[in-house]
Design a protein around this nucleic acid. Structure first.
Lengths: 189, 189, 189, 189
DNA sequence: TATGAATGAGGTTTCATTCAT
DNA sequence: AATGAATGAAACCTCATTCAT
C-alpha cells in the first residue's frame, strides 16, 4: 500500500472512532507510518483530507453498486440488487458506511458543490426515476422515494450492526426487509 | 430569556451550523450576550454543554410525543399520532432534530450511559413493542421495527426540508407516507 | 508596565536584533514574561503586532517632534528644531528609529493604508510645504525636499551610531550638518 | 538563461515583493522553472542564496560605477559621474537597488565580514576620501560625507520612483539635486 | 451570579533541507 | 546535473478553562 492510501485508511479508522476533531493530523500520520509533513504533501489542509476521503469512499460505494447492476436485468431485479448490494457493502465496510453518514451530517458537506453531490447519487436516483416513469414504483417524487429507500437501507444496517446475526440469518433478514420495502414502494395502479 | 436558556439556544444554532468543533465557547458566549466565563458557571466543560443540550432536546422531543398520545386511544391511533407528531415536531424544530442526529453520530454519544439512551427512546420502543405483541405490527424484532419506523420519519423530514411545500401539501404528503409505512409494517397474519 | 506595553517593548528589542522572521512569538512572550496566548489576546496575529508596533512608534516619533515645535517660532527655527529633535530622538531611541526604517522596507508597509502613511508624516511634510510656499526653502516639490531632508537625518544618525562621540562633539556635529543642509535647501532667489 | 541565473533572478523578484521570509524556496524553484532540489545544488542553504544574491548585486553596482569613472577625469568630474551613474543605475535596476537596502537593514548583513563590507563600498569611499584630502570636499570625516552623499542618492531614487517623470525631466532633476549636493559638500576654505 | 484577562497545552500548517533515483 | 517525494522541527495560532475581582 502506498503512502497516500495508507493515510486515507488510517484517517478513516480514526475519524470514525474519534470524530474529525478528535483525531489530530499528527496521530493520523503516526499511525499511518509516515511523517507529519507527508500528510500535507498529499492534502494541503486537513479539510481537504476529510473531503477527499469522503469522495473516494462515495465513489467506491457507487462502483460497488454499479458492478452488480446489469443493463439486461429487469428493472425490478436491478432495484432489488441495488438494495441488497448496498446493505452488504455497508456491512462489509462499516467504517466507510458510517463515515459517509457522519460526513453528510457535518458542516464539511458544504464544501462539496451541489452538482457533485447530485452526481454522486446519480446511479441510485437514476434507477429510481426510471422505475417511477415505467410505473414500477409508486408515483411519488423521485427524491422522496430515494429518501424512503435510503431510510430502509440505514435501518437494516443499524439493526444488523447492533445485533450480530449468523451469516444466514442476516441474509434472510435483508431479504425480508426488502420484501417489506417492495410492498411499500411498488406501483399499485 | 435568562442567560442559561440563551446559552443553550445559541449553542444549538451554532453547533448545527458549524459543528461542535467549529464553534468555540467564546463565540457561543459572545452571540449569547454573556461573558466568556459565564458559560462555565452553568456548564463545567464544553462537553457538558454538548451533552446537556442533547439531553434537553431529546426530553423535549419525547415530551412532545407523549403529549399527543392518549392512553385511551386505540393502539393504531397512537402509532399514527406518534409518526405524525414526530414529523411535525422535526419540521417545527429543524435545528433541534438535526442536532439529535448529528449528536448520535458523534463520539459524544458514548458519554451517555446505555440505560439512559434506552430510556430516552422508551416511549417509542414501548409503543412498538406493545403493538408487536398485540399483533398489530409485523412479527419482527422491536429494534428492527423501530429502526424502520425511524428511517421513514427521517426520510420525510429530509424531503420536506429540501423542497418547501405548502402547509397543506405537506400535511397530505406526511399522511401518504404514513399510509405507505403502515402497509409495510402492519401485521398481516 | 502593563502586559501589552511589555509585549511591545520586547517585540521591538527582538525584531531589531533578529528580524521579524527571526523572532518567534513564543520568544517574545517568554521574554516579556507573559504566556504565549496573552500575546494573541492583544494582537490577533503576529502581523498585527508588527504593524501595531510600527504605528505606536511612528506616533511617538511624531509626538516628539510636535512637542518641540512652537507655533510662535519663526519658520526657520521650527525647521531647525525639527531636524535637531529628529536626530536626537533617533539617537535616544535607536531601536525604535531602526525599526521604522526596517518596517518601511518590508512588505508589511503595504498593510498600512496610503492615507494613514501620509498622515503619519504630516507634521514634517506640512512644515516643509509651508516653508516652500513662504519662499524659505528651495522651490522644488515638497516630496523631494522631504526626501532630501530625511536623507540627511538618516546620514547623521548612521554616522553617529557607527562612531560613538562625546555628548558635546555629537551636538556640534549635528549642528554642522544642519548648517550644511540649510545651505543646500534654503531659498536663494 | 541557465538555471542558476534563473534562480537568482526569480529570488530577487520575490524577495523584493514578499521579503525573505515571505518567499519559500519552493516558490522560487517553481517560478524559476526548476525542481525544488535543484536550488539546493547551487546554494547549500537559503541563507547562502540570500547572501550570494546580495554580493552579486553589490558587485554589479560597483562595476557599473567603475565603468563610468575614468582615471584621467578631474576628480570633480568623477564625483559627479559617480552620483549620476548611481541614480541612473538604481532607476534602471529598481529591484536590485531596493534589495541592497532591504538586505542592509536585515540581520543577514551580519553574515558578511566587515572587511568585505568595506571593500564593497571601496570605490565610493576611496573617491570621497581622496576628494577630501585634495580639499575638493568639505573637511569632515569621510564616513560622514559618504553617508550624506548616499542619503542624497536614496532621496532622489525614492522621489523618482514615487512620481514617474519624463526621461528628460528626470535627467534635469538629477542634475539639479547634484548641484544642490555639490553646494553642500564642496570645499569652501 | 457574572466577568473577561490570562493561561498554556496542543492543534494545524509551513518549509528548509535531504536523498534515492 | 537534476529531480521531487519525504521529512520533522518549529512556527503560528486556537481555545477550553481558570480565577481574581
Amino acid at each position: 500500500m502506498d503512502k497516500q492510501t495508507q493515510i486515507l485508511a488510517t484517517a478513516l479508522k480514526l475519524f470514525v472512532r474519534f470524530g474529525f476533531h478528535g483525531t489530530p493530523t499528527a496521530r493520523i500520520a503516526e499511525e499511518a507510518g509516515v511523517a507529519n509533513g507527508t500528510l500535507f504533501h498529499y492534502y494541503k489542509t486537513k479539510d481537504e483530507l476529510v473531503v477527499g476521503l469522503y469522495n473516494s469512499i462515495r465513489d467506491e460505494f457507487s462502483a460497488a453498486i454499479a458492478k452488480t447492476i446489469h443493463a439486461d436485468d429487469f428493472m425490478a431485479v436491478r432495484f432489488k440488487k441495488m438494495f441488497v448490494t448496498s446493505v452488504h457493502w455497508a456491512l462489509d465496510n462499516r467504517d466507510k458506511y458510517f463515515y459517509l453518514q457522519q460526513f453528510q451530517l457535518s458542516p464539511h458537506v458544504h464544501q462539496i458543490p451541489p452538482e457533485k453531490l447530485k452526481e454522486q447519487i446519480s446511479i441510485q436516483s437514476q434507477l429510481i426515476t426510471d422505475a417511477i416513469h415505467k410505473r414500477l414504483l409508486i408515483q411519488q417524487p423521485p427524491e422522496l422515494v430515494l429518501n424512503l429507500y435510503n431510510g430502509q437501507v440505514m435501518a437494516v444496517y443499524q439493526y444488523l450492526t447492533s445485533f450480530e446475526l449468523e451469516e444466514d440469518e442476516q441474509r434472510r433478514l435483508i431479504h425480508s426487509v426488502y420484501e417489506l420495502m417492495w410492498e411499500m414502494l411498488k406501483y399499485n395502479g
